[in-house]
Design a protein around this nucleic acid. Structure first.
Lengths: 240, 240
DNA sequence: TAGTGGTCTAGACCACTAG
DNA sequence: TAGTGGTCTAGACCACTAG
């Protein structure tokens, strides 16, 4: 079908794996056999196997052969950037406060940042005039950076760092369901102690483990809905 | 450092990208320049580039050059198989009922399975004697399959299918916070209409879109906690 | 010892881009 | 037209596995 040799080999083997003609753990024919079967050179055949390997279909044991993977079908993926993931309507954002504070011992911010001074920014997210979520963002306070000095540009500054060092970052998101405290319930205009979704996001430098930002999003429970799926076949990846 | 040529090239370029010496959108040197710089053959250099591409660091535009990717750092991953993800303690499972039913029009099972007859299995998951979650699993009823005929073996049968056709499956998980209904609250022994986490998992055949199973897990809110992270560098992937 | 996969090279031909 | 990346080959040498 495809006029590119190595892709037609990939397609054929992949088809057999999906149809379970080749089952997890099964050994493929040897490379020299496959070379004859598909009438391609060793390097071309190996390029096909490489692709199948990258897509999680096969793995190889040197000296033995190539085998069909035991796939992990319990890994789910979803996209999350900020509140906009949850609030489809056009929203307003109300800046509540910008403060500089020291983490209290035993608080989660202390766990993360130790005793570094932090900038804390509180924002209220509204949809159709009603408050929907409360976001609190903590970032280390670095004097002389264009940060507190210019609150308005802070968000963009933060994003810029995130983009520049994107390959060095690791993000962690923890989702729980909590009773709101007095502050949160007042801001969201809900009953005290009623339930809210709590999303804690931490961004750290993958290499150095230095924390970059920590944020908490308190979201009205009826707005929380998360859909995650098994990752798709990564044909988006460029093929060399 | 590494004695494998193509890996040392990968390491060097990756280092530059992580350190933001090469920024998203930047063009790499041409392949012929890189060949000279690293003193490797074209195919070896291209193998390095291929790896970097697979790991999401670079992409190429034929006729133009290789470029540093604009990474998507908002994709999160987590593992989820069943209730065991949430209940760390040794748990008991109580089989509540196994029934055959027809989806009611407008119900979510009808949306998924249309009017196919379904097997519905209700289980109560207990931890330290107290009910923690209620699981309802729907599967198409196929007469003469070793399914309803032998309830005890059903779970294993289901798992076996899942394993065999793992490469053909796509799973979707939807998480929301809902008010419990009478049945759920009674079984979980909580106040009616109080909040529970609701996890709906659907397994479909990726190729044919035929649904395989649909399950709902009602989980006591205090047990719900989900931690997801940005995917790690996939050095687990075998390299050809 | 024969067979397997892993690394690496030199070289050929191609389509596409951009001046 | 010169340069870029994409495909494909034949061949060499290596370490590892298993009988």
């Amino acid at each position: 079908m495809t006029k590119v040799l190595y892709l037609s080999v990939v397609e054929d083997i992949k088809k057999k794996i999906i149809a379970a003609q080749l089952k997890p753990g099964d050994m493929l024919k040897s490379e020299s056999e496959l070379m004859k079967e598909y009438n391609v050179s060793r390097m071309t055949l190996r390029k096909s196997l490489s692709l199948l390997s990258n897509e999680g279909y096969i793995y190889s044991i040197p000296g033995k052969g190539n085998f069909v993977c035991q796939p992990d079908t319990d890994v789910f993926q979803f996209r999350f950037d900020d509140y906009s993931s949850f609030i489809p309507q056009v929203e307003d954002i109300e800046l509540l406060s910008v403060t500089v504070e020291n983490p209290e011992p035993a608080s989660s911010t202390y766990e993360i940042f130790k005793d570094r001074q932090l900038i804390r920014i509180d924002r209220l997210i509204l949809s159709e005039q009603i408050p929907v979520a409360l976001e609190i963002v903590y970032t280390p306070y670095i004097p002389n950076k264009p940060v507190v000095e210019d609150k308005l540009h802070f968000a963009n500054y933060s994003k810029a760092i995130e983009t520049k060092y994107a390959f060095a970052l690791k993000k962690t998101l923890k989702i729980t369901f909590n009773n709101s405290d007095e502050y949160v319930s007042k801001k969201l205009n809900i009953d005290e102690f009623s339930e809210v979704a709590k999303l804690e996001k931490m961004i750290v430098n993958k290499e150095t483990s230095v924390p970059l930002t920590f944020s908490i999003l308190y979201l009205k429970k009826e707005y929380f809905s998360l859909t995650a799926t098994t990752p798709e076949d990564d044909s988006s990846k460029k093929i060399f």
